[in-house]
Structure formats: structure tokens, C-alpha cells
Amino acid sequence: MALALESLTVSVGGKSVCRQLSMSFKPGEFWGIMGINGVGKSTLLQCLMGLRKADSGKVLLDNTPLLTYKPIERARKMGLMLQEYEYNFPCSVMEAVLIGRHPFVHSLQWENNKDKNLARQALQKVALDSFSERSINTLSGGEKRRLNLATLLTQNPEYYLLDEPVNHLDIKAQLDVLTLLQHKFKTRYCGIMVIHDPNLAWRYCDHILLLDNGECISGEAKSILNTENLSRLYQCPVQTLKNQEHTIFIPHKNDLHLTTND
């Protein structure tokens, strides 16, 4: 049981995202995908979700080519939290979260109490349970982000594809959300998350995939996340501060000399 890539080559606008990439994402793993802006992290997630065709190679979901799945069957196994959403036609928070049940509810039926309970539990997990009847247009950016996560939790697929899920979140909310996800992905679920902050990635992800203009480096987080890889990836010197528990990555520009007061 895994989401496997076989010699996957993806490009966007003539620029290579990955070349001949073969690897697999398994339940119980929490992956972080990192790379500079525009390197194709979101494009790769869309390929993994089957929403965009690869140039060559295959994505296999539980040993079956992803593109042979019906969209609705795929949505029962995989879910995607996008970076941005459209909110031109607002609804209540509860209605927004309940759309996560769409793959599981017959087209002529309405969501039942079980679906509503799943939605309530998801809202509770992201601390939005008291907002359920509010219009989504009254939510802040961070609250909307938690709402998007609640929708995905209500969908509750086996593979969670997350595109910068902690965007707009304050520092405590970032930790809360990532702790929730880390806990979830220790069981039979798999998380694949695009993330920019190497410190959060180091703390929460157990595996890392670095995208570097078509070249990919993947492996266990603790071995991949080092000053050498990060400095090369971001073309910016990265230093580390370590104590017994944590490693903290500090990027700085070449021409800047940090002092203890900076």
C-alpha cells in the first residue's frame, strides 16, 4: 500500500520539476516537500493527485495506475488541500466543511448525521467548532486555512496532500496544526506537505523531498535537512543552532553579518 512514482518526469512552462523520479510515499510517513518559489512543488502535488498529467512515467496508487481510477474513487483515497481557494459564493463554515464528504455521499442523497458528526469533529480539531454557522467570508486568513484543513479532515482520505497548510497561521496555530497532522500520520495515513520553513519541517516531518530545478533529493528528514543541502537549495547560506533536542536553521545573506543583537 503506497503512493508510488515510477520514473516520473514533470515540467511546467518548459521548466523541469522532476526528472525520472522514482520513490514511494507510504502510510505512517509524513513527507515534507521543499524548494524555492516556482520550482514546481504545487505542480508536483497536482500530479500526485491526478489533476495534471506528467510528461512521462507513472503514479501508482496502491499498485494501480492513478489515472485508471474514477475521480470519485480517487477522492476516497486521496485528498488535496490547495494553497488558495475561491470564495466568490460564500456559504456557512459547516457547509464548506461538509463538501469533504462529497466522495462518500450518493449524488441524490444529502449528508447524513454521521457525515455531520465527522464535520463537527474536524471543526473541533482545528478549533473552529464555535464558528460552524458563520459565513466563511467573516473568517480571517488563518481561520480560512484551518477551515480548508477541516474540509480535508472531513474527507479523511488515506493520503493527505497539503500545499503550504500553515500559511497565514500564527505561530501557535502552526504548531497545533502540525502536531495534529503528525499525530494523524503516525497511523495508517500518509501526509505529503509542501512547506517552506525548514525548522517546522525538521520538527514534524520524518521524510523530506527537496526539489532543485529537476533534481530531486529524498530521504529521512534528519539526514536530508542539513546546512549543505539547504544552502545549495535556497542559494543562501544557512547556519544551524543545535541543542540536545532541536536543530534550528538560520538563513542569512552573504553580505549580512549577524551579531548577537541582530
Binding site: 474514477k70 475521480p71 474513487e73 477522492a75 476516497r76 485528498g79 488535496l80 490547495l82 474527507q155 496532500l161
Partner: peptide, 11 residues
């Protein structure tokens, strides 16, 4: 109403 990508990810 949520856009093509969200619709696609929900089947």
C-alpha cells in the same frame, strides 16, 4: 464554486 482543482480533488 470552489474552483476546478478543489472540485477535482473531491472527485
Amino acid at each position: 464554486l470552489w474552483g476546478d482543482l478543489q472540485a477535482g480533488s473531491l472527485g
